[in-house]
Simulated scan of single mutants.
Amino acid sequence: MITTRDIPVLAALGRYFLMNRRMIQQECYPTDVDGRLSRRRLSALVRDGYISKQRMLVVNPRDETPAPVYHLAKQGCQFLAEHFEDDRYLAKPTSIAQPMHLYHYLAVANTHILLDKAIAQSEVKLMTWCNEQEFLNPENPDPKQRIRLYAELKTAPKKIICAPDSGFLLEVDGHRGVFYLEQDRDRDNYSHNRVAALKSPGYTELHRQQRHRKQFPATTLNRFTVVMVAPNEKRRDALRRAFHKKTGADFWRFASLTELTPQTFLHERVWYRTDSAEPQPLVKTTAPSTISSELTLNREETDNALALSKP
């Protein structure tokens, strides 16, 4: 049976896709110091079929403790759709396509939580967030017309795809810019040079085709920014050097997870370009008198306000 204490858990899983008990406890039961309430309610939700528990053990991004993870089940999606009167919940993912990537999905969820907390302290608006497992247009009644972030951009002479970990739309002073997230985990078999070689062609072609406008029709800009979150400063700088050699290097901004907090995420100088050792904020708030209409979309200060890339 659903209680009022369970609704925030279901809503959080609907927003962040995948969470472990520690994350749910922090976001939904902050006064549950010993975790007993969190464990009891999660067990009940699993038992009653509202959420699913992935029994594959993963490594927690923060405390390195193996822990199961949770995501919505079909019944949980149905409850949220009825409770919030929003049928988009019915299109939420209820399975994990690649269980070997659980650690990665948790890291993306942590970044999403960080961004939400940063937004709560800022004038910037988060208009849309979409994980790689979700549909960009879940409201479309025709399942065949629903699209995801994954895009196959060319098939010949060489196949080119773009597969962001997530995408989101920020609004500043009436202008809306697209951001794509790449969550780096510094895996042993993915050197910084290999990551750059794999990721750069897709985003370069995505920009050439202006495909971000199809994915996020509400954007007001012809450019987008790719934000790469690395686990530490050393990895961040190695990635910057690798991407600097690639076409489309100007699309990218790099930050270390060790420097990202709700206070620094948007407006502090923690984001690096490939061609400068001076960090910049991800978003610069600008007076409405400076950016006031569609006529200013191509002006440099508009793109700078959203840290967007220049061609």
Score class of each variant (00 low, 15 high):
311 P>V: 06
80 L>Q: 06
77 C>R: 13
192 H>W: 00
159 K>V: 03
258 T>W: 05
224 F>E: 00
269 R>D: 14
223 R>A: 13
38 S>P: 09
26 Q>Y: 04
236 R>P: 10
249 A>E: 12
46 V>S: 04
201 P>S: 01
35 G>R: 08
259 E>P: 00
41 R>A: 05
61 P>D: 02
176 R>T: 04
239 L>T: 07
74 K>G: 03
21 R>M: 11
118 A>N: 04
93 P>F: 14
84 F>S: 13
93 P>Q: 11
147 I>M: 09
25 Q>M: 14
116 D>V: 07
18 L>T: 11
126 L>F: 09
10 L>W: 05
178 V>L: 05
134 E>T: 04
143 P>D: 01
97 A>H: 06
251 F>H: 03
271 W>H: 12
209 Q>T: 07
74 K>Y: 01
154 K>G: 01
275 D>R: 15
254 F>L: 08
199 K>G: 00
1 M>T: 12
158 K>T: 13
83 H>E: 13
173 D>A: 10
24 I>K: 03
50 Y>P: 12
193 N>G: 12
151 A>C: 00
83 H>T: 05
148 R>F: 04
216 F>Q: 02
251 F>R: 02
257 L>M: 11
46 V>F: 05
99 P>T: 14
109 A>V: 00
85 E>D: 12
116 D>S: 10
89 Y>E: 13
17 F>V: 14
155 T>H: 10
6 D>P: 08
223 R>K: 03
16 Y>H: 15
54 Q>A: 10
61 P>E: 04
219 T>R: 01
307 A>S: 15
242 A>D: 11
114 L>N: 05
182 E>A: 11
73 A>P: 02
123 E>V: 00
282 L>V: 08
16 Y>V: 13
138 P>T: 08
131 N>Y: 15
53 K>W: 00
33 V>G: 00
189 N>H: 13
308 L>S: 09
213 R>Q: 14
42 L>V: 10
54 Q>S: 08
196 A>T: 04
233 E>P: 00
276 S>W: 06
111 T>R: 03
299 R>V: 07
11 A>E: 15
278 E>F: 03
117 K>Q: 15
134 E>A: 15
265 F>W: 12
134 E>Y: 06
260 L>R: 06
1 M>K: 07
249 A>T: 07
218 A>E: 14
259 E>K: 13
44 A>C: 03
198 L>N: 12
203 Y>T: 04
203 Y>W: 10
105 Y>F: 14
135 F>I: 02
151 A>T: 10
249 A>Y: 09
7 I>Y: 06
221 L>F: 00
177 G>W: 02
241 R>Y: 05
224 F>D: 00
61 P>S: 10
84 F>T: 12
228 M>C: 14
142 D>Q: 10
23 M>R: 15
270 V>T: 05
104 H>E: 00
297 L>Y: 11
20 N>H: 14
32 D>L: 08
116 D>F: 04
306 L>V: 11
250 D>R: 13
249 A>I: 01
109 A>T: 15
310 K>Y: 13
195 V>D: 03
151 A>E: 10
75 Q>Y: 01
50 Y>N: 09
138 P>L: 05
219 T>K: 02
35 G>D: 02
105 Y>N: 07
284 K>C: 05
18 L>A: 06
62 R>K: 13
79 F>Y: 15
222 N>T: 07
261 T>G: 09
281 P>I: 10
289 S>M: 13
